[in-house]
Design a protein around this nucleic acid. Structure first.
Lengths: 216, 216
DNA sequence: TGTACATCAGTGAACGCGCGTTCACTGATGTAC
DNA sequence: TGTACATCAGTGAACGCGCGTTCACTGATGTAC
């Protein structure tokens, strides 16, 4: 009844079990407080299994990070494809709502990621790996920003990369405030802030002048 | 030659020596990596002196945090008093430059504070203390925002508190990006982002219509 | 299809080490008379 | 001003404990013939 797996398949299974367990435990306890013991146990293995699949705690976290970004990017791509906002401003607001929703669905993610960034920023090799992962994510988010601009026939005062970076930075900064005060920066104010930010960075496109919209 | 100090004076001296040393060591090594041994040694005492003045590592950090906020608030108050920007937009840009300057002068501060916030957010009592410290800081920053609005005869779409919170959140979120990529969000783009954000949240005041300015 | 040997994913226990916290003690400052 | 006792800031050493990492081993899978 039990499917017979090859060694490689079995190992791949173990690896993804470990990543899934690591994700859960890291979210629950944070990067520093989570132990490899917890993670291995959650996955149904022993600590040695972790070392048979990853160089150590840091590399295990990088795997969690990559899996997370991949999932988030897919969500954004889907949302973008389904977006039918009448105006550009409404799209900007919808993006804010989506970011807010993601943060409230998984409030432990942002502090976890930042905890790791701070940790990684103090170790050269690790920082470079975290930065590479970040660059891949931002490149995709930038392409979404560009797609929105194209659809609405507008351009930005800054590169799509910087626009995307600032948009995420605002959301993340506010999520940090909520760590201390859960009431801080509720959805409505955040939506307003994000719209203000995006509208302020939008300028009419030189091309496509006929499809331009008036902003406020 | 050596001034004779009373017990209370001596203890106060020790306490501020420890806070100063703690600040330096925390900045250099981060909250988790800094040890009380390092700190005591840097201050010229032993670990016991820390426990004679503070309940432990967490409370020592809170003292560093308060001292820091106090200093920053004074700087902002001074800057605000000296501000002679011709236009509101120029004030918004000057604020961005000032935040950027503070971050580049002390790039370790933001990650250090966030490391602690994440740590504190997982311990109820500590979180409440960190939140109280944060509230005090934000209340003062809000009053500066209100002062700027008053001078220029404008109002905001959100409370001064939320405006201040978002402004700091944007700066802090970008500082986090620079942890991984030091090139990210240089001064010029940040100034643009911050101006966009602030201008977008500014609305003409009902009162003082004669002193209103046109924004973009 | 069967046998003998090689590989290697995962086990389980031990290792090392660091660090926050505790505590009995000391000697200088403070107080009572 | 002097003496005897009390206080307490800071010392120095020990304690406890947790956790990331290492490693010899095992038994199931893979390979050669």
């Amino acid at each position: 009844m039990v499917t017979r797996l090859t060694r490689a398949e079995r190992k791949g299974q173990t690896r993804s079990d470990l990543v899934a367990a690591a994700r859960a435990v890291f979210l629950r306890r944070g990067f520093h407080e989570a132990t490899l013991e917890d993670i291995a146990e959650e996955a149904g293995y022993t600590k040695g299994a972790v070392y048979s699949n990853f160089a150590g705690k840091d590399e295990l976290f990088l795997a969690v990070l990559d899996a997370h970004f991949e999932r988030r990017v897919e969500e954004w791509a889907l949302d973008l494809a389904l977006d039918d906002s009448a105006t550009l401003e409404e799209t900007y607001r919808a993006v804010a709502r989506k970011m807010d929703e993601a943060d409230r669905r998984e409030p432990d993610w942002t502090p976890l990621m930042l905890e790791f960034w701070v940790h990684a920023s103090r170790r050269d090799g690790l920082r470079e790996q975290a930065a590479a992962s970040r660059r891949r994510f931002l490149a995709l988010m930038s392409s979404f920003v560009e797609e929105v601009a194209r659809r609405h026939g507008v351009e930005f005062r800054l590169s799509a990369l910087e626009v995307a970076r600032g948009s995420g930075a605002l959301a993340r900064g506010l999520a940090m405030e909520r760590l201390l005060d859960p009431e801080a920066a509720a959805l409505a104010p955040f939506e307003e802030m994000h719209a203000a930010y995006m509208i302020g960075l939008t300028k009419p496109s030189a091309a496509g002048a006929d499809s331009q919209e008036t902003l406020r």
